[in-house]
Design a protein around this nucleic acid. Structure first.
Lengths: 341, 341
DNA sequence: GTGAAAGCGCTAACAC
DNA sequence: GTGTTAGCGCTTTCAC
């Protein structure tokens, strides 16, 4: 059954025409190249008979474009990125692109390596949620000629000369915190991880701003960072916050994975306090629909983010015969979040 | 800056050697081809200077292998498949492979189209959780020469001549049901959908076997199939089971999506019965950690499944210079589930 | 209307 | 030790 895969040349030979002719027919140049109706039909018949499909690798080599775009995220199994992946797949396949993915595991080294591999594979472009947007390799990317759009993890305003699509993290967390305050909480703690990463830091700032605006004096242990290796597990943190003489009456989490962890910890060890506790979170989880207490969250317009990220990427690709004077200027977009519960 | 990407020929020219020499050095044939130390060093120096990386597309064309494997699942944003994707990525990258993915949305048409696209791109092999393992296009795959391994959604025992990796659905559901019985339930109903699909039917059998083994006479409406178009919504079914004079005291769901639906229905309409109700489910949901009543579930050994699926796929690939008499016989593996709560 | 031929960048058998 | 060369399968200019 195997047999050599049939090639365009085989078709041409069997028909007694040239590869050129077959190629023209296959690529819809039949009209412009004035291939006779009869020849067209003969070609199409044989193509159908053998169920011939052109070898994309050869085509790619010739054309210098693979119709593949790379998606690099910290972890594809994170439901947030998995959703992104799906949206991207849908958008991309509409335009005839495929998606190859890589998970950096928050490691710059792995990220660089994936990036390098993807370039070698000549992906047409890359959507990147970087493990560290401040790392120098991001700078280098800008001058590399490879179309790259940063999303989700984006760099502070100007500097980096790469297109970036994201949300206003600070504003989002400020809004969530304000909502919690409006609902009556006064002693609000924040649990995060990856302090030092821009997104996290911005969210922390948003929380702090909201607290300051409300004239609440934060206690020193209200800002917590999960760090297993330093013995700061979610359980430890929750115990510290909730077993105090004066426990906190609300907790905001800097991302949804933490919220999930936190919920588990609360249910396991602090169930009796659920009634008096508010929770807040950046980003949403399906889970929130089923669980007590209700969680106030900032919902990212992911569809819009992916859409503009992908469109921005397409715009950088060569061959988008537009007013391509410059190589598609570097776009920056911040989408607005929506607070919900 | 952009500039033309540098090629092997450029390196060779600048060095005044032939492409062969450079190629040999780059591919580690330096020793066997007895390239002089000095030439090696000169090549390596220039490669480093230009940060030259071979064009994988050209290489692929020449070698007929892309080092890319395709993952086709119903929906990459489904956390179950997202997890699988990540495990596969990790395994694959260890062996120098990349993963490209496609979501079929449970549509055979989309699945076929993705399959066709992936072949055109000359992926080296495919891991497929098919929208319908009984569809004829699966049969065709077997004779197509493209290495494919079925997983998760696998066909009934023999027939299909494709390697398949999955779990023993019947045994899994038998175990879950037995656990419910051991915990004291006597009147256990099962809610499923997709009766007629192999996986579902096996799970139903497992439930029935467990009930028979316990000498429990099942009542006629204990086996329920959700079917919106026939007016059998989850809410209707739950009402029928739980509002009876003699309500059931446990419900098992044939998959986790149903369990999620069922939980919602129970919480909305039958909250007072939660204390006297046991739940069972094939497969786990994060949700189960947070919700009452506790759910007994069969946990799939996903790591092991992915591992054997990938290994099986590798074994089908040409060039695994082993005792390749036959094109790697078609393997079938059923992994054992673990029951947990 | 159709074909010949020149590559895209790489590998590897076969010279020398 | 190193170079020549023939492709892998496709697109496309230019000729007829």
């Amino acid at each position: 059954m195997k047999g050599k895969r049939i090639s365009l040349a085989d078709i041409a030979n069997e028909l007694g025409v040239s590869k050129t002719t077959v190629s023209f027919v296959l690529n819809g140049h039949a009209e412009t190249k004035k291939i006779s109706k009869k020849t067209q039909e003969r070609v199409e018949a044989l193509v159908a008979k053998y169920n011939y499909r052109p070898n994309a690798v050869a085509r790619n080599l010739r054309l210098g474009s693979t119709k593949v775009i790379g998606l690099i995220v910290p972890d594809i199994s994170n439901p947030y990125y998995a959703k992104i992946a799906r949206m991207l797949e849908d958008q991309a396949s509409d335009k005839g692109y495929h998606v190859i993915f890589g998970s950096s595991s928050e490691s710059i080294e792995r990220e660089r390596s994936i990036l390098a591999k993807f370039r070698q594979q000549s992906v047409d472009g890359i959507l990147l949620a970087s493990a560290d947007v401040n790392s120098p390799h991001i700078e280098e990317l800008a001058g590399s000629g490879l179309p790259v759009v940063l999303f989700d993890r984006i760099a502070s305003s100007s500097e980096v000369k790469l297109s970036s699509i994201g949300v206003d993290n600070k504003s989002a967390m400020r809004q969530v915190t304000k909502r919690l305050l409006a609902n009556g909480s006064k002693r609000i703690a924040m649990v995060c991880n990856h302090i030092g990463q821009l997104a996290t830091d911005s969210r922390v700032e948003g929380y702090q701003e909201a607290m300051n605006d409300a004239n609440i004096q934060m206690e020193s242990n209200w800002l917590q960072e999960v760090n297993e290796s330093a013995g700061k597990s979610m359980d430890t943190i929750m115990a510290e916050l909730l077993n105090a003489k004066q426990p906190v009456d609300a907790v905001v989490f800097s991302n949804s994975l933490l919220a999930q962890d936190g919920l588990k910890s609360i249910h396991q060890n602090h169930a009796e306090q659920i009634a008096n506790l508010q929770l807040g979170c950046f980003d949403k989880l399906d889970l929130f629909d089923y669980v007590t207490p209700k969680v106030v969250y900032a919902e990212q317009p992911n569809e819009a983010i992916v859409r503009s990220a992908f469109e921005t990427l397409l715009a950088q690709l060569p061959g988008q015969a537009k007013q391509q004077k410059e190589p598609a200027a570097c776009t920056k977009v911040l989408h607005e979040v929506k607070v919900a519960v």
